[in-house]
């Protein structure tokens, strides 16, 4: 598969406030993401994960290094709208990214900006609303919607641009469990059915566990980059960085520490159930 995002030697510092030294937020990041991948970026607050995300569609530009998205260098000002159509972004606060007081007009916002003709716009807006399952709400006001619904509208607003990649910056942090489920289901569907590359920034381990690949950020660098199974098997390292592992992984790890023969790459409930059953079956065999 083609690489859609290519980040090489990325350094970034916010401009120095008077009197204070500029702190380097990103310290040399090399990362490539393939078209169609579903990648989670984990890291505690201040690890640089949001800053990294903002580089993918040129909200921020590298102090050093290079970011190329869909073949476009983010530093190329002339192609910025092309870039932003290719890589759309969804933010944490569902309220602060909805522009219009009517759902369908908000979804159309980017298309209006791009000067898409009416007939095509109508079709793309309707398709996007159907894709996130919000078509019935097209005439509603966003203030009547739940957090999860608002976030789906924000996703629809990006989908309407027909991007190849969507970056979501903690889209579920402010939602209740119901809203989180809705948003995750929508994101997964976009990835599977439309082949859109997803970069999901989160600190919920259960969400990261649903991805193909996890990139763990720590202090402005990439600390781990592997499949969820591999990442979570490094329980100690993950916890040291200040992140959680799924409870089942933690239990397996605790049991291993106590000397039990249990695999360390358990990440689902089903695997945990099976492993415990196996443990007890062996146990019976021994005691006999």
């Amino acid at each position: 598969m083609e690489n859609i995002i290519e980040i090489s030697g990325l350094h970034f510092s916010y401009p120095a406030d008077d009197g204070k030294e500029a702190a380097e937020v990103l310290k040399g990041i090399d990362l490539t993401i393939k078209e169609g991948e579903f990648v989670a970026v984990l890291g505690h607050n201040g690890s640089g994960k949001s800053t990294l995300a903002k580089h993918i569609n040129a909200i921020l530009l590298p102090t050093a290094g290079k970011v190329v998205v869909g073949g476009i260098d983010t530093a190329d000002e002339k192609r910025i709208f092309e870039l932003r159509q290719c890589a759309g972004m969804v933010f944490q606060n569902p309220d602060n990214q909805i522009v219009s007081s009517v759902v369908e007009e908000d979804v159309a916002f980017a298309l209006e900006n791009l000067g898409v003709p009416y007939e095509e716009m109508r079709r793309r807006v309707d398709d996007a609303l159907k894709a996130v399952n919000m078509y019935d709400y097209r005439q509603h006001s966003p203030s009547q919607l739940s957090g999860g619904q608002k976030q789906r509208i924000a996703i629809a607003g990006i989908i309407a641009m027909q991007p190849r990649c969507i970056i979501l910056d903690e889209p579920t942090a402010m939602l209740d469990p119901q809203g989180r489920k809705e948003v995750m289901a929508t994101i997964r569907k976009m990835n599977r059915e439309q082949g859109i590359t997803i970069v999901l920034i989160t600190h919920y381990m259960d969400e990261a566990a649903q991805c193909d690949r996890i990139v763990v950020m720590d202090k402005g660098t990439v600390a781990l980059d592997a499949t969820p199974r591999e990442v979570f098997s490094h329980v100690e390292k993950v916890m040291e960085i200040g992140l959680d592992v799924p409870q089942v992984t933690e239990l397996a790890w605790e049991l291993r520490k106590a000397g039990c023969d249990i695999p360390q790459d358990i990440i689902t409930e089903q695997e945990c159930v099976e492993a415990i059953q196996k443990l007890f079956a062996q146990n019976k065999a021994i005691s006999r």
Partner: peptide
């Protein structure tokens, strides 16, 4: 935040 989101949508 809204300004950033609007910019992201071209």
């Amino acid at each position: 935040e809204l300004a950033t989101a609007m910019e992201c949508r071209c």
